[in-house]
Amino acid sequence: MRKEAIEIGEKLRERRRLLGIKQPELAFLSGVSSRTIQQVENGRGNPSLETLFQLADPLGLRLELILKEPQKPADQ
């Protein structure tokens, strides 16, 4: 698994759980299958940008925040 894919999946899962949304509900809201959601959240598969848009929208996330790498603190 690629590190980036895992981080994207973790961001989506964290937001979904924060909102109290279960995977089947997100599947209904986004039009993305529960299986695909599970794969994305676990860092497997290769979701298209369209799929990521579909998942981000009902979670109230902007796609650029999902794709952005976390800032590393500057060395002092």
Rank of each mutant, 00 (worst) to 15 (best):
residue 3 K to Y: 10
residue 4 E to R: 15
residue 4 E to Y: 09
residue 4 E to C: 09
residue 5 A to E: 11
residue 5 A to D: 14
residue 5 A to Q: 13
residue 7 E to H: 11
residue 7 E to G: 08
residue 9 G to N: 06
residue 10 E to V: 12
residue 10 E to P: 04
residue 11 K to C: 06
residue 12 L to H: 03
residue 12 L to Y: 02
residue 13 R to Y: 02
residue 13 R to W: 00
residue 14 E to F: 10
residue 15 R to F: 04
residue 17 R to L: 14
residue 25 E to W: 01
residue 26 L to M: 05
residue 27 A to C: 08
residue 28 F to T: 12
residue 28 F to K: 14
residue 28 F to G: 09
residue 28 F to S: 11
residue 31 G to D: 05
residue 32 V to F: 05
residue 34 S to G: 12
residue 37 I to S: 01
residue 37 I to L: 09
residue 37 I to H: 01
residue 38 Q to G: 11
residue 38 Q to K: 14
residue 38 Q to Y: 13
residue 40 V to G: 00
residue 41 E to R: 05
residue 41 E to V: 08
residue 43 G to I: 06
residue 44 R to T: 13
residue 45 G to P: 05
residue 46 N to E: 12
residue 47 P to G: 04
residue 47 P to I: 05
residue 48 S to P: 03
residue 48 S to V: 07
residue 48 S to G: 09
residue 48 S to N: 05
residue 50 E to K: 11
residue 50 E to Y: 08
residue 50 E to W: 05
residue 51 T to H: 04
residue 52 L to I: 08
residue 54 Q to F: 03
residue 54 Q to P: 04
residue 55 L to S: 01
residue 59 L to S: 03
residue 60 G to S: 03
residue 60 G to E: 02
residue 63 L to K: 03
residue 63 L to T: 07
residue 64 E to R: 13
residue 67 L to P: 03
residue 69 E to D: 12
residue 70 P to A: 09
residue 72 K to H: 11
residue 72 K to P: 07
residue 72 K to R: 14
residue 73 P to W: 09
residue 74 A to H: 14
residue 74 A to M: 14
residue 76 Q to T: 14
